[in-house]
Design a protein around this nucleic acid. Structure first.
Length: 533
RNA sequence: GCACCGUUGGUCUAAUGGUCAGGAUUCCGGGCCUUCACCCCGGAGAUGUCGGUUCGAGUCCGGCACGGUGUACCA
């Protein structure tokens, strides 16, 4: 702790010097990234558009943004979409709009541009191709032709012998002529980085002090995949340098691969940025926050009716505190008082009880009745949702006083489930669980969230399970509405969206007594055995 | 397995090596109040463990325990 304090002091004075320098130099030069590195604080968030917008992304983005903006620097958003098979444009859109909803805005990014673009890695292939040539030429990277079979066998053997797993340097001994002829013959290959086998890599983490990792722990990482695209490690380093990133603030999960990154900077002859590894947000069981165990999508919090300012505030309380101890603070206040050395390293548990309290505090203290009305109305009844709800309700009511009860499932979060709610004369409890779990998996994999595709997916699933659609839908009705009779369950699913649907199906599953790990595995096998049209 | 990073009430956190380890949440009790909630007051509850340095350790050093992460042609 003392150590932390003295580091904090030292850093603050160093930052002042750098800042002053940037004022002097920055006024005269506007060119290479090297100048930017020397002169300006530049941080980034580099999400991979492979799924729901994650609260962990927002968390790291928040700290990067506060760090940069508290020192007159810039905060950049870069899309890391080198994994062609998993990246989607939809996910990218969701990430941008979620961060914007939270008020975490960026100075440069794929949507707003900037001097260091493009800000999407899939548009930077030429840059990576060019840069890998440098490493290939100076011998710090090499072509590898090993098949995945050989690599698998190698790994198995290493594990059996209880040795460290990793590449054995097989292709390191290839001559240039050999490499050229095999490449010329069209043989598939990857590019790996050479890694020393002796000694330690030492670096100074902004929060943790010196970290030493033996080079023997570091694998000869693939830099360019056989599809010609870079892996994270390579693209990340090249881009961070070219974009003038001065401080890499990222999750703790990256500590172990920092030596790879440092080595790449060295191979290129570039000055490395400062590294700062934040603690990881955790599930209540202390494992890394995951959507299997918790709602992790920012969209979930949005559709549950949390306020963006409360969620950002709450994220700011994770591993960090205001110097004056204030618990309710805005993004602006956080930025103004920001001091990265106030980050505490124990992984904070993302616990909803305190978020609820904080959100309520915002609602009570910051909203006049008319503000509340406006905010609530636009949350509960945005025009398109209202248009979808009204026709459903009109058919089923006799008088206005019936409306609220019917609409309840569509404007609520989780619903209380009565004991025995899932009793059914055709379906055994285990069958009900299967329907719920399979439906959840099926819906999660749905590409578009339209009435027809949801219906088709569920019908296909019912057929695969050899259940009558009527019986099949029963558990879903109950899970989604809390009652066996209600509005169209498919409409409800469409209107409520995946996040609320997931939460309801999950709470139904746990109301049924939960699914053990063993059961889950069996169900997974069965589910993967299904085939869809 | 190996490596790395962590460890203050259940949870989020505060504490220039020096008061009685402070605040928030949660839970419980009381007050306000027609009820509930809000709000106010009060209570319960923590430095993982063993050793070392020191006049003095939550804070510095070492061992152990526990937890987490990493060990991919994912990021």
């Amino acid at each position: 702790m003392t150590d932390r304090k003295s580091r904090r002091r030292a850093r603050q004075s160093a930052d002042v010097v750098i800042w002053a320098l940037s004022r002097i130099i920055g006024a005269r030069f506007h060119c290479a990234p090297c100048i930017a590195i020397m002169t300006q604080i530049r941080t980034r968030i580099a999400p991979s558009p492979t799924g729901d917008p994650h609260v962990g992304t927002a968390y790291i983005a928040l700290f990067n943004r506060c760090f940069a903006h508290s020192q007159g620097g810039k905060f950049i958003l870069r899309i890391e979409d080198t994994d062609q098979s998993r990246s989607t444009a939809q996910s990218e859109q969701d990430i941008l709009s979620s961060l914007r909803w939270l008020g975490i805005e960026w100075d440069e990014g794929p949507d707003c541009g900037g001097e260091y673009g493009p800000y999407r890695q899939s548009q930077r292939s030429d840059i990576y191709r060019q840069h890998i040539e440098t490493l290939l030429a100076n011998g710090s990277a090499f072509r590898c032709f090993c098949s995945s079979e050989r690599l698998d066998a190698l790994r198995r053997q290493q594990m059996q012998e209880k040795r460290q797993t990793g590449y054995d340097g097989h292709c390191l001994s290839l001559t240039q002529a050999e490499v050229d002829s095999r490449v010329g013959a069209g043989e598939e290959s990857v590019v790996r980085m050479a890694v020393p086998r002796e000694g330690d890599c030492r670096f100074n983490d902004l929060l943790r002090g010196e970290v030493a990792i033996a080079w023997s722990q570091i694998d000869m990482q693939i830099l360019i995949k056989s599809d010609g695209l870079p892996t994270y490690h390579f693209a990340n380093v090249v881009d961070d340098h070219l974009m003038g990133i001065s401080h890499v603030i990222r999750g703790e999960e990256w500590i172990n691969s920092t030596p790879k990154h440092l080595l790449l900077y060295e191979y290129f002859g570039w000055e490395a940025p400062r590294f700062c590894h934040m603690p990881l947000l955790r599930n209540p069981d202390k494992s890394k926050l995951s959507k299997r165990k918790n709602p992790t999508s920012i969209n979930y919090y949005r559709s549950m009716g949390y306020l963006p300012q409360a969620l950002v505030n709450y994220l700011g309380m994770m591993g960090w505190s205001m110097p004056d101890g204030a618990e309710k603070f805005t993004l602006t206040q956080m930025t103004r008082s920001f001091d990265i050395s106030r980050v505490s390293l124990g992984g904070p548990i993302f616990d909803l009880a305190k978020l609820d309290w904080l959100n309520g505090k915002y609602l009570r203290e910051d909203f006049a009745a008319e503000d509340f009305i406006a905010a609530y109305a636009s949350w509960a009844f945005p025009p398109d949702k209202l248009a979808a709800i009204v026709p459903l309700i009109m058919q089923r009511v006799d008088k206005f006083s019936d409306v609220a009860e019917l609409a309840k499932p569509l404007v609520s979060g989780e619903l209380p489930l009565e004991a025995g709610a899932f009793e059914h004369k055709q379906l055994a409890p285990s069958e009900v669980q299967r329907v719920l779990q399979f439906s959840l998996w099926r819906l999660e994999s749905l590409a578009d969230w339209q009435r027809d595709s949801i219906e088709a997916a569920l019908q296909g699933l019912a057929a695969a399970m050899e259940l009558k659609i009527r019986d099949f839908l029963f558990p879903l009705f109950v899970a989604m509405s809390g009652k066996p009779v209600s509005l169209s369950v498919i409409e409800a699913i469409r209107i409520l969206g995946l996040d609320i649907t997931r939460a309801r199906l999950r709470s139904a599953l746990s109301a049924m007594g939960g699914v053990s790990k063993k059961q889950l595995k069996l169900l997974q096998q069965e589910f993967h055995g299904f085939s869809w049209p």
